[in-house]
Write a protein that binds this DNA or RNA. Structure first.
Lengths: 335, 335
DNA sequence: TTGTAAGCGTTATCAT
DNA sequence: ATGATAACGCTTACAA
């Protein structure tokens, strides 16, 4: 077996409690004893057992990250968020436990929560239903929703400012002279989609342009979905001169569709994406996008969660982070 | 506090051991008792405490994934591996704990191991020194090295067949008529680099082409490194007609450098990458690459590790997975 | 079939 | 300043 506190205590003829205190830096231990304990701890290669600590302290110093399966396929998104989060967590001695499908059913989620194998959860889901939020509140488990706001007033969340970002994007397109702008959307609009769409609609209305339902096409959460959506738009009699893709991967799909049709970007059709994923810079031409601070969102989600772990009775924290329009060649001004 | 086994036992006037046995499906429990226990467990919303189980069973059903910081920036790589691994782990009731910087120093790694907060480790490192392998063996902790082979005979690892892949790549380029082929390398060659380079050199030698040291340029593990390396190659008096980039991100950097020089791909300079990351398909033209089965590597690493967790005295498992050449427009046959 | 009791390795309370 | 002891929640010989 491994070296335990008892091994140290026996060797030093001290009680385990004194050893524990010395190890944990309590002040009611003589300097001499502390040094002795620390010394033999190092000598014996002692390191505390996580399981024993967890059980005793009712805390694990671990944070659960629960991902929607589909979000994993947006690898830039996933990776950036996780890197930011892990760094922030490790900085204060916490670690991240990854869950991908566990959140599928409320039952397995409850099991996960009650097992108390982590101190709190960050949810990276496409959509968090109120019913789940209610359950989380019921369980009194600290949690933060990452990447999208939710309407439930008691939920803590951190999300990019989708409305502002999409508004800037629309202004950019309108200034470039576009009046027929296609929009790709999702069958069931979550807040992310809704906010971006609202900005699209509001910008058009404010510019005195009528909303054309034909220009709004659905995409699914699956590969090539953006490709098909773009084709639909390009097939219109009066086809759009610009396409506002739901996010960068959809924009890349659309890019491909446009190129295949033999059309020039941005001369024939301009294209803009959203999220600022690094892939959007790799296409030719690179795609205009709205960059959200993913690593910071990951980092901040941890800080928020740690606060709630320290005191879960605090009022919910809800943060909207600013985003930045990144104009690239895919939507340069028309001459 | 949460619902414990004791709550069930009290309510049912049974001993905690009987309850535990019933819960864990032991056969020496009457059918009636089992149903009773299961019923009240569900009724009270009982779920076992992970910490208590872990302490008692000396097992956590968790697997540590230790990443080199730099690898995180290859987000496609990271995401695919992790998705494959997490799915495989969750399928057998295990979860993944993510460590990014913890592996930096041997000391913090030892601390991590002795804390026993996971049952075993998968290392995703650029390079695992023999000295670390020795330490891991010393600690008798189950581990698997993912993505690269190591020379230490006692280590278990799973890696793509870099030599074969690079050989196919070279044959493809040679058949296309290239004789001056640039190669981007790393300052300190790990096995991955070495294997790809060996294939490069062997293929040239076999084709009767002399190795030109000028065509071998170093890249660092940092953004735009491939860009600078490519420029160096393009600046040669007798510049290469093809570039073999160390991996896809380097290829993308090189792509940019070539385009900026006003050169055509593949007519002036062909370019090939390695790894089969999805981004390589998004450039114009898309980049020829060698696809390695990342999700399967992730999945398989878990299966291997689970075997070692079950019995760490088994002989080391060392697996080389086949890769696949994916020819794209960036290296089409010269006319 | 059920129960008793010990133990996993720590920390925290309360004496001394 | 140090120590005895209980407790965290569970599993598992062993006994009944």
């Amino acid at each position: 077996m491994s070296v335990t506190i008892e091994d140290i205590s026996k060797k030093l003829k001290l009680s385990t409690s004194t050893v524990s205190k010395a190890l944990n830096g309590y002040k009611d231990v003589s300097e001499k004893t502390r040094e002795l304990v620390m010394g033999t701890a190092k000598e014996l290669g002692y390191h505390p057992s996580a399981a024993a600590r967890n059980l005793r302290r009712q805390r694990t110093d671990k944070i659960g990250f629960v991902f929607n399966n589909s979000l994993m396929y947006i690898s830039d998104y996933f990776a950036e968020v996780i890197v930011g989060a892990t760094a922030a967590a490790e900085a204060v001695g916490n670690n991240i436990v990854l869950y991908i499908n566990e959140g599928d059913s409320p039952d397995s989620l409850i099991k996960l929560i009650r097992a108390k194998e982590v101190d709190g959860f960050v949810f990276v889901w496409n959509h968090v239903p109120d019913q789940i939020v209610d359950m989380l509140l019921d369980e009194k488990v600290p949690f933060v929703i990452l990447g999208r706001r939710v309407s439930h007033p008691e939920a803590s969340w951190i999300a990019p400012d989708n409305y502002s970002g999409a508004t800037e994007l629309m202004q950019h397109l309108l200034e470039a002279g576009h009046t027929r702008i296609g929009f790709t959307t999702r069958p069931s609009m979550g807040h992310t989609n809704q906010d971006r769409f609202d900005a699209y609609r509001d910008a058009l209305v404010q510019a005195g342009i009528e909303i054309d339902e034909d220009l709004i096409v659905e995409t699914k959460i699956e590969p090539f979905s953006g490709y098909h959506a773009a084709k639909k738009l390009l097939d219109l009699e009066d086809r759009p001169t610009a396409i506002f893709a739901f996010h960068d991967y959809v924009a890349i799909d659309a890019h491909q569709a446009i190129v295949e049709r033999g059309l020039k970007i941005p001369d024939d059709v301009a294209i803009v994406g959203f999220d600022g994923l690094s892939v959007s810079a790799f296409t030719t031409p690179p795609i205009t996008t709205v960059t959200q601070p993913l690593a910071e969102i990951g980092r901040e989600s941890i800080l928020m969660l740690l606060k709630r772990i320290a005191n879960n009775n605090l009022p919910p924290i809800q943060k909207t982070l600013p985003v930045e329009l990144e104009v690239r060649l895919s939507s340069q001004l028309k001459k």
